[in-house]
């Protein structure tokens, strides 16, 4: 994979977005850092523009109403100061990418988030999937720990944490997506088998590094939803939070919206799964 090579040579990671104050990415007030790129390809991803890296095809450039995009040689260049955040470029892109990505070294990223440090409890790295860049994370997290801040990873579960004790030792907790457990369903939804995710679930539980597990409830997919919630609840019990997320079509690519339905998951439907999880011992289950 091209970007992984680029990353290891330059010690830079592609950063899609920084949200200085977030109340939904772990305990307290946190800065969320979104990395670009993901090894999964979920149908219901609601920011699909973070999945791939830009291939510099140039298709989005003429569409930008603010002239914030231009070609420099064969590279797309994004001028942050001109951008009006209209999102036209990410809708135009056919490759699940975004031109609004900055390749930053750890040092450069720190210089952007330092000003938030007095106000936050810690940072949460997310994406895309930030675990594509484990060395970058290790350096970033050690620097954050020196500053007295906690570091959480929001992970899709593809990365084998059991092989990276160095990363685990500088990470205060992992928020793991368990999207599905039935193999065929996982394969269809994500494009891969669920096994690595489920191995991580057990491993991180045993290591006491699980901050939270998350499952998206899709409307009407009763058998699949139930299997996932039962599986997770049985395993985690009261060891961590269990966030039951209602599917919302907002942001999802149109083609997939058609497959998955244009409806949100009803509150009552999701609440029933929260109760199911709680009845199986996952007392810290809640809905968003």
């Amino acid at each position: 994979m091209l970007w992984i090579e680029g990353y290891s040579i330059m010690k830079k990671a592609p950063i899609n977005k920084i949200i200085y104050f977030s109340n939904v990415d772990g305990p307290g007030n946190r800065t969320s850092i979104f990395f670009q790129g993901c090894s999964f390809h979920c149908h219901f991803c609601h920011n699909p523009e973070t999945i791939s890296l830009c291939q510099n095809c140039g298709r989005c450039v003429p569409q930008c109403p603010a002239k914030a995009l231009r070609m420099e040689g064969r590279q797309v260049v994004w001028e942050e100061a001109k951008c009006v955040q209209c999102d036209t470029c990410i809708h135009v892109c056919q490759l699940f990418a975004s031109p609004r990505v900055s390749w930053l070294t750890v040092e450069e990223l720190l210089s952007r988030i330092n000003r938030a440090l007095p106000y936050i409890e810690g940072i949460t790295t997310s994406g895309g999937d930030c675990t594509l860049y484990p060395d970058f994370l290790k350096e970033l997290f050690s620097r954050m720990h020196q500053a007295g801040k906690t570091c959480l990873i929001d992970a899709n579960g593809a990365y084998d944490f059991s092989k990276d004790s160095a990363l685990l030792s500088v990470c205060d907790g992992i928020m793991l997506d368990v999207k599905a457990v039935l193999p065929a369903w996982h394969q269809w939804l994500i494009g891969q088998a669920p096994d690595p995710v489920l191995r991580n679930l057990d491993f991180l539980l045993a290591q006491h590094k699980l901050q939270e597990v998350r499952t998206v409830i899709l409307p009407g997919q009763e058998e699949e939803n139930k299997a996932t919630v039962q599986y997770v609840a049985h395993r985690i019990q009261d060891a961590c939070d269990y966030k039951i997320i209602r599917y919302r079509p907002f942001g999802v690519k149109e083609a997939y919206q058609k497959e998955l339905g244009e409806m949100e998951t009803a509150v009552e439907e999701a609440e029933a799964y929260v109760r199911l999880a709680q009845s199986l011992g996952a007392s810290r289950a809640y809905m968003v």
Partner: peptide
């Protein structure tokens, strides 16, 4: 409004 922006994963 200080709002939570969409988190990465559904």
């Amino acid at each position: 409004i200080q709002h939570h922006e969409e988190s990465a994963h559904q």
